[in-house]
Simulated assay, not measured.
Amino acid sequence: MNNKVLITGITGFLASHITIQLLNKGYKVIGTLRSHDRNDSIKSTIETHTKNIHNLSFAVADLNDDTVWDAVTRDVDFIQHVASPHPRQAPKSDDELLLPAKQGTLNILKSAAKNGVKRVVMTSSLGAVAYGKSYEELEKTLSEEDWTDETNLADTTAYYRSKTVAEKAAWGFVSYENIDLELVTICPGAILGPILESDFGTSANIVISLMDGSFPAIPKIEFDIVDVRSVADLQILAMESPTAKGKRYIATAGHLTLKEISQILKGKYPNRKIPVTELPNFVTKFLSLFQPMLKSILLETHNRKTTNKKAINELGWVPTSPQEAVISCAESLFLNNILK
């Protein structure tokens, strides 16, 4: 297979899994990173999971630098746009996330259109679908037709607002610029599954916090969970399938409360001290006054019902179970010495 795929943010959790699957399918892959400092380490990581490492190359490109993407996207057939700012600490200003997420996406799309790229698959988020909602809206099952209201600050985070704004900007670009570039967006829930190195996705902190003694008791919150390998699979299905052109797909494998995640981990590691007692919501709200990072998880006290039927029915997607995503994440944290 001679098709060439550009993947943005190759050192990221999801992007490295997509890269492995693309290489194993015979694609040539160009991975972007902010500097060549990570070339050797990410190549070494990926090499342990594929025999086709010779088809991998790298390019330095920053999302905010609109001067580099014309060269980076030249002679590329497809783009997997995965990179997006996602800090571990809450940003001081929304603009720290919104501006680079939106402008970076537009920089890539403009260059892709100019260079005749066939299709861009953009990693969005369930945060662009299921938030900014009223209690009445949360009574229904949400689908790809639904959008987060980024103006509703009470039911969104800066990250969710950035993903919403960036995805809306992408659809606006391909709709109004009268171009042939095809766009597909994937909206995953909380991504777990096996981490490949110590530079792991932020969702893995869900498992870490339950197993490292961070919480003597657990907040009464819940998530849509999806395995990183399943998201990578869906991103590639969305790239290859003619059916996917111009569509959004929700990527979730099931819904778990934090208590259910704790019970899964307790079943796997019965001798480890893992909390299973839930905190009442009012206690979590009180603690959030002193720990600002807890404020974002207060949004997860609602069951935001979503459906993955579109990806399953249209693309034949078969997601790994959320239980497997939790267990494989935990196992990989020990393998990478993040947990002892």
Score class of each variant (00 low, 15 high):
Asn2Leu: 14
Thr8Lys: 05
Asn24Ala: 04
Lys25Arg: 12
Lys25Pro: 01
Tyr27Met: 02
Ile30Leu: 05
Leu33Gln: 13
Arg34Cys: 00
Ser35Gln: 04
His36Arg: 13
Asp40Asn: 14
Ser41Leu: 13
Thr45Ile: 10
His49Phe: 14
Leu56Glu: 00
Phe58Asn: 01
Ala59Asp: 08
Ala61Pro: 07
Asp62Lys: 13
Asp65Met: 01
Asp65Cys: 00
Asp70Arg: 09
Asp70Thr: 08
Asp75Tyr: 04
Asp77Trp: 03
Phe78Leu: 14
Ile79Thr: 01
Gln80Glu: 02
Pro87Glu: 08
Gln103Thr: 10
Gly104Trp: 01
Thr105Ile: 03
Ile108His: 05
Ser111Leu: 05
Gly116Arg: 04
Arg119Phe: 05
Val121Glu: 08
Gly127Leu: 11
Gly132Gln: 08
Ser134Glu: 09
Ser134Arg: 06
Glu136Gln: 13
Glu145Ile: 09
Asp149Leu: 06
Asp149Cys: 06
Thr157Glu: 07
Tyr159Arg: 10
Arg161Ile: 04
Ser162Gly: 01
Glu167Pro: 00
Lys168Val: 02
Glu177Asp: 02
Glu177Cys: 04
Asp180Ile: 11
Asp180Val: 09
Leu181Gly: 03
Leu181Thr: 00
Ile186Lys: 08
Pro188Arg: 11
Leu192Thr: 03
Gly193Trp: 08
Pro194Cys: 05
Glu197Gly: 15
Ser198Leu: 12
Ser198Thr: 15
Phe200Asn: 09
Leu210Ser: 11
Met211His: 07
Phe215Glu: 09
Pro216Thr: 11
Pro219Gln: 12
Lys220Ser: 14
Val226Phe: 06
Val228Leu: 02
Ser230Trp: 08
Asp233Pro: 12
Gln235Val: 10
Ala238Met: 04
Glu240Ser: 03
Glu240Trp: 09
Pro242Ala: 00
Pro242Trp: 05
Thr243Phe: 11
Arg248Gln: 03
Ile250Trp: 15
Leu256Ser: 13
Leu256Thr: 09
Thr257Met: 09
Leu258Lys: 06
Pro270Cys: 05
Pro275Leu: 06
Pro275Gln: 11
Pro280His: 07
Phe282Ser: 14
Thr284Tyr: 00
Ser288Gly: 09
Phe290Thr: 10
Pro292Phe: 15
Leu294Phe: 13
Ser296Asp: 15
Leu298Thr: 12
Thr306Phe: 07
Thr307Ala: 04
Thr307Tyr: 04
Asn308Val: 02
Asn308His: 06
Asn313Asp: 13
Leu315Ser: 14
Trp317Met: 08
Ala325Arg: 05
Val326Trp: 09
Asn337Lys: 15
Lys340Val: 03
Lys340Ile: 02
